[in-house]
Design a protein around this nucleic acid. Structure first.
Length: 255
DNA sequence: ATGGTGGATGGTCCA
């Protein structure tokens, strides 16, 4: 079973690239973030043509998360249980072949000390509560998505430049570590120990050709799934295609 | 120094 996560930065603007990547990579499941469209406008028919059914938690203009899968997606849940009416669409959970998928678009946080930053930390706290209340770490649980946090210095091209900044600050790393302590293993880090592997490169300042990126997109797995994890990698290719997302897919294969 | 680029939108907001 091959599962991928990709912040597509508008599924409508990125549709040709996403379909091309699906046709080439053929994952069983793709979790997407930043759809930037409503469920009504989601191009489900185009995914269906490639053999993928879809579930969407949409929102106009911002956010939005979706799962496309070749097998049925069961027990779908949209949002955190304590979300208020009209809350930002940032979490979509579903079960595929017995694996509980939790697809998240963690708030970016804008910059340290802002209201958006506090919202990010609070959102991560609520995510941990949700995991505690609804799931067991000895089940097959997979948390993936755009975490908007580079967990360690080896996930950052220039740790001194990024020290204390958004995506790398100590409170963000502590919050994400609290999520990990629920019972997750970073599937990518099971297979790669060294730095220099990134999943996001800013559109500005030629970040991609210079490889000045961050590893902020993750696939985290509970112990039973970790035992089945055979390979994991970041597919940099779509970041180099015409009109790319600023993120690229992270993939994990299970036996 | 508060840029630089890109998406949705139709003013700016968000990343």
């Amino acid at each position: 079973m091959k599962i991928a996560t990709w912040n597509v930065n508008s599924v409508l603007a990125r549709l040709p690239l996403v379909l091309r990547w699906l046709a080439e990579a053929r994952p069983d499941v793709l979790c997407m973030q930043e759809l930037k469209c409503t469920a009504e406008r989601f191009p489900a028919a185009e995914f269906a043509e490639l053999g993928y059914r879809s579930e969407v938690f949409g929102q106009p203009t911002y956010n939005g998360v979706g799962i496309v899968s070749r097998s049925p997606i069961e027990d779908v849940r949209r949002g955190l249980p304590d979300d208020e009416e009209g809350a930002q669409a940032r979490l979509l959970a579903g079960t595929v072949e017995g694996v509980r998928l939790v697809n998240v678009y963690v708030p970016n946080g804008q910059s340290v000390g802002t209201d958006k930053y506090r919202f990010k930390l609070e959102w991560l706290r609520r995510l941990r509560d949700f995991l505690d209340d609804e799931y067991w770490a000895d089940d097959e649980v997979l948390l993936c998505g755009d975490f908007n946090v580079a967990p360690e210095d080896r996930d950052v091209h220039d740790p001194e430049h990024w020290r204390g900044k958004i995506l790398c600050s100590r409170p963000e790393r502590a919050a994400i570590e609290t999520i990990r302590e629920w019972g997750f293993t970073d599937a990518f880090r099971q297979h790669y120990k060294e730095g220099g592997h990134y999943s996001w490169w800013d559109y500005r300042a030629g970040s991609f050709p210079r490889n000045t990126g961050l590893r902020i997109d993750h696939v985290w797995v509970s112990e039973p799934l970790s035992a089945r994890s055979r390979r994991s990698w970041i597919d940099k290719e779509p970041r180099g295609w015409e009109r790319p997302s600023d993120h690229t897919p992270v993939v994990c294969e299970f036996s």
